[in-house]
Design a protein around this nucleic acid. Sequence first.
DNA 1: ATCGAACCCCCTTTTC
DNA 2: GAAAAGGGGGTTCGAT
Lengths: 97, 97, 97, 97
Amino acid sequence: MPGLHQATPSQQPADVAGITGAHLLQYIERIERLEEEKTELGEHVKEVFQEAKSGGFDPKIIRIVLRERKRTPEELDEEEMMVHLYKQALGMTPAAS
Amino acid sequence: MPGLHQATPSQQPADVAGITGAHLLQYIERIERLEEEKTELGEHVKEVFQEAKSGGFDPKIIRIVLRERKRTPEELDEEEMMVHLYKQALGMTPAAS
Amino acid sequence: MPGLHQATPSQQPADVAGITGAHLLQYIERIERLEEEKTELGEHVKEVFQEAKSGGFDPKIIRIVLRERKRTPEELDEEEMMVHLYKQALGMTPAAS
Amino acid sequence: MPGLHQATPSQQPADVAGITGAHLLQYIERIERLEEEKTELGEHVKEVFQEAKSGGFDPKIIRIVLRERKRTPEELDEEEMMVHLYKQALGMTPAAS
DNA sequence: ATCGAACCCCCTTTTC
DNA sequence: GAAAAGGGGGTTCGAT
């Protein structure tokens, strides 16, 4: 392997005896594999949404439900209460408050 | 399937004999499971980046390389050429072009 | 605009007599100016949030209120109702429903 | 104005003498106004892109050029060099390097 | 602990 | 109507 001797100014990886390049490749291929799997899972998710939609469910509402399921009821209630409070202060109370 | 006919105006889910609620739950749980797995994979990705960083590689550059590897050389070259062309038209040619 | 036929393989800009480059530059500078202004406005928004926070308001709640103010009460009610419905079907009814 | 005693547990805004609600409203309306202006600017940007497209320019390439113009040539060169280096280490050198 | 930046996700719009 | 791209918002992480 000719050349490449000096001239690796400072903080580059600097392929030494093919080691570094191989390492880099390892990292990259591992990430690519993982990303592939993520993509597949994402496609499955999409399919399930599609099925649900075909079954008469609204994906948008499902997303909201999923989001809320990730939070504790306490959080949810707390937030809801605060929102309500702010709305009251703004005179946005929908009907009866 | 007895009763429950009135009061389900149109396209709501309307739990009929426990069927719909169960279906909805199926969808939701499948999605939640898939999302969990996606999250795990995402964490693995993060770990690999961390390793690479510890190994002296710049994650930012790695991301760029990953992005470019997802595209065909033709696309890349085409785009690069066009960018260069536009830059020339703008007088942005960095040095020698 | 006559001419231009030869040697512009397909849809490249191709600076002819300095015209195209100037045009491109116009577009680019107009966009850059507009983006600058957008950025400034964004900073002002940030400042207002900061003030509100100093005044004891929770930015997170404010964001929710802002979001809801952009929608009609009908939309909101409709959505809320659907979410409630789905939750019921899932047995997620928080307390009294 | 006394009253309002019960039921304002702790850290809510608590409209006292109409002051807080008014304050909140000020914040909210200021933000809404700023956001409106941002939206308008965004529409202008869109229009310019449309014009440029009609003029034969590729919006995608324009975006890339805009992005690069926001960075200093030093940054760009530095990054480009590193990407090139990594690609070499990976044996991704397209043709001549 | 606050600030800023990077990343990820959702949504809207546009294209095919 | 579906798929893709771009823009915006939210969140999390790292840095100070």
